Amino acid sequence: MAVQIRPDKRGLRLASLADAAEQLGISVKTLRRRISDGTVRGYRVGRLIRVDPDELRERLVSEIPSAK
């Protein structure tokens, strides 16, 4: 399934919670918790909540250092 990302008036690319969660392999509930605790910013568009996929990757995805 292709994730639809639409830029808003400020140039933000916003995605639905379901699309963003699927893309990262997490649940929508986890994504809502991260918005609630301030780890990720959510944007209200009417009654809908959207997130910036680029911000999600920056804040939720981290590299695991390899031990050599």
Rank of each mutant, 00 (worst) to 15 (best):
M1W: 05
M1Q: 08
A2Y: 11
A2G: 11
Q4S: 11
I5D: 01
R6E: 11
P7C: 02
D8T: 03
K9A: 14
R10P: 03
R10I: 09
G11H: 01
L14S: 01
L14C: 05
L14R: 03
A15T: 01
A15V: 09
A15Q: 07
A15G: 06
S16G: 13
L17Q: 02
L17M: 08
L17G: 04
A18Y: 09
A18R: 15
A20F: 06
A20D: 04
Q23V: 12
Q23C: 10
L24F: 05
L24Y: 00
L24W: 07
G25K: 05
G25L: 05
G25C: 07
I26T: 03
I26E: 07
I26R: 02
S27E: 09
V28Y: 04
V28N: 06
K29S: 14
K29M: 13
T30F: 11
L31Y: 03
R32F: 01
R33V: 13
R33Q: 11
R33I: 13
R34A: 10
R34G: 03
R34L: 10
I35C: 02
S36Q: 15
S36T: 13
D37H: 02
G38M: 07
G38H: 02
G38S: 00
G38V: 06
T39P: 03
T39M: 05
T39V: 12
V40A: 05
V40S: 07
V40H: 02
V40N: 02
V40I: 14
R41N: 10
R41T: 15
R41V: 15
G42K: 04
Y43K: 08
R44M: 12
V45R: 14
V45S: 14
V45E: 09
G46M: 01
R47H: 10
L48K: 15
L48A: 14
I49V: 15
I49C: 07
I49N: 05
R50C: 03
R50T: 03
V51C: 06
D52K: 04
P53L: 00
P53A: 07
P53R: 07
P53S: 00
D54K: 14
R57I: 11
R57L: 10
E58F: 01
R59D: 07
R59P: 00
L60H: 00
V61Y: 02
V61Q: 02
V61L: 09
V61D: 00
S62D: 10
S62G: 07
S62W: 02
E63N: 08
I64Y: 09
P65A: 10
S66T: 13
S66C: 12
S66Q: 12
A67V: 15
A67F: 15
